[in-house]
């Protein structure tokens, strides 16, 4: 849950949330639409700079999160680059007795493009999530006129996630203190017991929390005071410049 923690610390938290979401989503769309290495690299750099230099997210944390999907990414790129064939159909082929592992110029290129495209997409997502707490994201969704019940559920889920995380980590510590992790068999039992216990705790809390809502006059709508953060002119201008470069790079 580090992302949430750093989102509150970010120096660009004060930017209008809808504006950040717009930048991230538009970037995502352009990156996957263009699918060009040059564009992807620029996006990685620009989004990284915004997150690290302007937002001041610690680079160690950022780097670790950028590397997290790399394993999945390498494998899926490998699957795109290499194909099987009865004959050596690609430019590079390895015979594995029954068939050939082939890699063609084209599929290699596709895999490399994919690699950078995903990195760019991830960096755009991180720009948003490392600077915008989830409750502000829910408010942006509200502007899109999603059903109220759904949004309310989201708000509550967000709040409850932290409560259950606390409960779970306390249970884990308590289990460890009683050697609940002494061997693998016991560890599995402990894990399941915590899973079961957590569910009961969640239901009990759910009941009390509803009483607490009612006690403050809840009538089926979660209405809260929200603050408007206007988009500043220079932010909009910067955004415009950024998207122009993205589009120009694609034409280049």
């Amino acid at each position: 849950m580090q992302i949430d923690y750093y989102a509150y610390q970010s120096r660009i938290r004060g930017w209008n949330a809808a504006f950040k979401v717009l930048i991230a989503v538009a970037t995502l769309f352009l990156v996957i639409l263009f699918n060009r290495i040059l564009v992807s690299l620029f996006v990685v750099a620009a989004m990284g700079a915004l997150t690290l230099l302007v937002g001041r997210t610690p680079w160690r944390v950022y780097l670790r999160y950028m590397l997290a999907p790399v394993v999945f990414l390498l494998f899926s790129c490998l699957a795109v680059a290499v194909s099987f064939s009865g004959s050596p159909a690609g430019e590079w082929n390895v015979s594995v007795h029954f068939f050939y592992l082939c890699m063609g110029q084209e599929s290699l290129e596709a895999a490399v493009k994919l690699f950078f495209k995903v990195l760019a997409g991830v960096s755009a997502l991180y720009m948003m999530s490392f600077s915008t707490p989830a409750d502000e994201l829910v408010l942006v969704l509200e502007k899109l006129h999603l059903p109220g019940m759904f949004l309310e559920l989201m708000q509550l889920v967000y709040r409850y996630i932290f409560i259950l995380f606390d409960a779970a980590s306390q249970m884990q510590t308590a289990a460890k203190a009683r050697l609940g992790d002494c061997n693998i068999r016991q560890s599995f039992k402990t894990f399941a017991a915590i899973g079961g216990n957590l569910f009961v705790a969640a239901l009990k809390k759910g009941n009390t929390y509803y009483d607490a809502l009612l006690a403050r006059g809840y009538q089926g709508r979660l209405e809260l005071l929200t603050e408007e953060k206007p988009v500043r002119f220079w932010q909009a201008a910067l955004g415009g410049l950024y998207f122009s470069i993205v589009i120009l790079l694609n034409l280049a």
Partner: peptide, 26 residues
């Protein structure tokens, strides 16, 4: 007004200002 024992059971919003506004809004 009822202040619950476990503050966590009462706090629903994601920042303090919004949290305090819940009752008056209702």
């Amino acid at each position: 007004g009822f202040v619950f024992q476990d503050a966590d059971s009462q706090l629903i919003a994601s920042n303090v200002r919004a949290e305090i506004s819940f009752g008056p809004m209702n």
